[in-house]
Design a binder for these strands. Structure first.
Length: 418
RNA sequence: GUGGGUGUGGCCUAGCGGUUAGGGCGUCAGGUUGUGGCCCUGAAGAUCGGGGGUUCGAAUCCCCUCACCCACCCCA
């Protein structure tokens, strides 16, 4: 798990602000759910026997003996809240977004952490293919706003659980003759989750995988019509996409549309965000049958991609002004000047007394502040301070001048760039 | 869960059986009386991830362990 240090804070704030702004542009509203939930919210939705539950959820018991979980994802919790707060009686769909930390007991690796931050958006209560397309549009708009271009959108339709069960049988017939030549992992998947063989890394070039039947040929007429409508909407929105029948999802509550977004030169843990339709989830959680669609995107991976592309240079925030108090009267004059400026919205680091002028100016220079404000006993007696521009590009020139404390705010805020 | 790699002051790193464990960056102080960026001087800061062992002697070799990183697996 990671600390976010001051040098990184600006990037995180930028990503978060951009995500929330874009979500609101599409009229989604924020929901914040607890970090800890009753374990059943996540266990039942993921299937009690899956790897997800057995190995990757942080589980613990509270003092009352209840089984709790650190939330591993957002969608199930949002759906729990939808049911609990009777949101089915609000205008449908309910349009929600969230931003926060999640926890997964995975082995960490590039772009994968045990505490991870996600931004997610959900439209609950609609089966319209236009909603699927809107969410994809929103997700791509976020990446675009952040400067992440050249991403690949891959979409697929996986029908219903019933479709996938039938398709699994087809795949069994297909892979059976090749079984001995497949990798160990694929042979295991043959029994546990046969659809996953399709996106095996090891066997990606294996004849059996290359010639495998496509789930798209096994969709129901309704599912096919839905998928075609999603594609029409994407085209209307001017969104480029690839159809990739190898994108699958393991859990039964998924339905129809699934998508993933990858940066160029993808490999490894590269997916930057993924979404899909989960028409069966609300029902699994004890609510009425309610169609829904959403996506989530990893903040660490966004940050990783932005840094790799030089879209954000690490840097501290800098104060506008740093004071240099000299002597006792100077210290109180500096404090007064700082208060005046802060009231006007100018950020001020009030320097600590006791340093030599030289040392204080060195520190002021290193701080990146635009101005040093020198307050000595002589100035204090006159109710003034010395305002010294520190950067060569100051519009008022580089000459320092004496300014009355009470007029400091006007002097500084009049100028652009402070 | 499986495999591989790396661990030396805050950061980067030299050293790979005998060194007071060296350097760079950063930090702090100073370079004369109230003026920065460069430069110069000085200081603080390391039980060499931890624990065992081999050896006259270990940061350097061996074993165990922990942490981190990378890949696989998994990916809600």
């Amino acid at each position: 798990m990671h600390d976010t240090l001051p040098e990184e804070a600006g990037l995180w704030r930028h990503i978060r602000d951009t995500a929330e702004r874009v979500a609101r542009l599409y009229d989604y509203r924020q929901i914040t759910t607890p970090i800890v939930e009753d374990a059943s919210v996540f266990l039942h939705t993921a299937g009690d026997e899956s790897d997800i539950v057995r190995k990757e959820v942080y589980l613990f018991e509270d003092r009352g003996g209840d089984a709790l979980a650190l939330r591993p994802e957002g969608t199930a919790a949002v759906c729990r809240a939808y049911i609990e707060h009777g949101m089915a009686s609000r205008p449908q769909p309910v349009r929600l977004f969230y931003f926060g930390p999640f926890f997964r007991y995975d082995r960490p690796q590039a772009g994968r952490y045990r505490q991870l931050w996600q931004f997610g958006v959900e439209a609950i209560g609609t089966d319209s293919p236009a909603a699927d397309a809107e969410l994809i549009d929103l997700q791509l708009a976020l990446y675009r706003e952040l400067g992440l271009t050249g991403l690949t959108l891959r979409i697929n339709s996986i029908g219903t659980a019933e479709t996938r069960r039938a398709f699994g049988k087809v795949l069994e017939q297909h892979f059976l003759p090749y079984l001995k030549t497949l990798s160990v992992d694929s042979r295991r998947r043959f029994d546990t989750n046969i659809l996953r063989i399709l996106d095996s890394k090891e066997d990606a070039q294996h004849e059996a995988v290359l010639t495998a039947p496509s789930i798209l040929d096994h969709l129901s007429a309704e599912d096919r019509a839905h998928f075609e409508a999603v594609q029409r909407h994407l085209s209307d929105l001017g969104i480029a996409y690839e159809i990739d029948p190898r994108i699958v999802r393991g859990l039964d509550y998924y339905a129809r549309t699934v998508w993933e977004v990858e940066p160029p030169g993808a490999g490894g843990q590269s997916t930057i965000g993924a979404g899909g339709r989960y028409d069966g989830l609300i029902e699994v959680l004890g609510g009425p049958p309610t169609p829904a669609v959403g996506f989530a995107t990893g903040i660490e991976r966004i940050a990783l991609n932005m840094r790799e592309r030089g879209l954000w240079a690490a840097g501290d925030s800098t104060p506008d002004v740093i004071t240099i108090p000299l002597g006792e009267q100077g210290a109180s004059a500096a404090a007064r000047a700082a208060a005046v400026l802060r009231n006007a919205g100018v950020s001020v680091r009030n320097g600590l007394p006791g340093r030599s002028m030289r040392a204080a100016l060195r520190a002021a220079d290193a701080s990146g502040a635009r101005y040093a404000l020198i307050a000595g006993d002589a100035e204090a007696a006159a109710g003034t301070v010395v305002l010294k521009p520190l950067r060569g590009d100051d519009p008022a020139g580089t000459e320092q001048r004496t300014v009355e404390i009470e007029s400091l705010a006007a002097v500084l805020t009049d100028r652009p760039g402070t």
